[in-house]
């Protein structure tokens, strides 16, 4: 019995900007080990419109305080409803779900690319990967400056780069327009990414061209999160239609039919 359904206590639900919230939850039992890339499935209460749970990548884990945080970006009615949750309330989680990223090896230089709510597992990985900051580059893409959350606290884990579609912060354009890509991923041993499919496809393509190891974390629609509904499938080269929730959400780019 490796997975659980339990109520957590909401410690904090804070707006990080106009569309992103950080939901900090405390477990009533000791947290199991959770790796960057794994996710939880969160119950949204008091709505007939919202029947299913909502999956979120784990953003931060604090084993001492027995808390985990989720980065909630308002995308639809489920995430909207979660922003209304208040400190002190109970919230039910199914956890821990899915597989984390393959950890880099000692001495690897890694590039972590996040877009939208996909930055949550990337920032977690920056902390979790055990590499010195000079070996870690974090690239965050967004439409505009207002969409970026404060990442000052992550500077100690690596060099952070930004892109915005309107040029209001960092390099203008998509993440693949950033010099780290423009220079052919030179010097990187591994690329990890989570975000919109189009972004991940472009990153995957660049990595494959340069022969750089690349893992992507998929966000397919799912009902259960633990492999019984067979709704979140992704066609793969080696495992047919694979459940993103149990075979992923992290996949090596070479196993996908992208």
């Amino acid at each position: 019995m490796e997975k659980a359904v339990n109520d957590f206590v909401v410690i904090e639900n804070a707006a990080l900007n106009a569309t992103n919230f950080r939901l900090k939850l405390q477990s009533k039992t000791p947290l199991p080990g959770i790796r960057a890339g794994q996710f939880v499935n969160v119950e949204v209460k008091n709505s007939n419109e919202i029947f299913l749970r909502r999956p979120f990548s784990v953003f931060e884990v604090d084993y001492k305080a027995n808390t985990l945080s989720l980065l909630v970006k308002i995308l639809g009615r489920g995430s909207k409803k979660l922003t209304e949750v208040e400190a002190g309330e109970d919230i039910s989680l199914v956890y821990p779900l899915g597989n984390g990223f393959t950890m880099p090896q000692h001495g690897d230089k890694v590039l972590l690319v996040g877009g939208g709510s996909g930055i949550a597992p990337m920032l977690f990985l920056a902390k979790d990967c055990g590499l010195p900051p000079e070996n870690v580059h974090i690239l965050i893409g967004a439409r505009s400056k207002e969409d970026h959350i404060d990442t000052e606290g992550y500077k100690e884990y690596g060099t952070i780069g930004f892109t915005t579609e309107d040029g209001s912060l960092g390099v203008k354009g998509f993440v693949t327009h950033h010099p780290w890509f423009a220079e052919g991923l030179a010097g990187f041993d591994k690329v990890y990414t989570c975000g919109p499919d189009l972004m991940m496809k472009a990153i995957g393509k660049a990595a494959v061209e340069k022969g750089v190891f690349c893992e992507v974390s998929l966000e397919n629609l799912m009902a259960c999160g633990f492999g019984v509904c067979l709704c979140c499938i992704e066609p793969t080269k080696d495992k047919g239609n694979a459940c993103v929730c149990t075979e992923g959400p992290v996949f090596n780019i070479n196993s996908l039919k992208w």
Binding site: N48, F51, A223, C229, L230, C231, C232, I233
Partner: peptide, 30 residues
Amino acid sequence: KGTTLHNRDGNDYPRMAETPSGMLNAVGLQ
């Protein structure tokens, strides 16, 4: 889970849609 004589890949994604107090599925006996 529904079993068939031979392997079935099921239907294409998306196979699920949340609806009020329920959901639609179109797994297709994968």
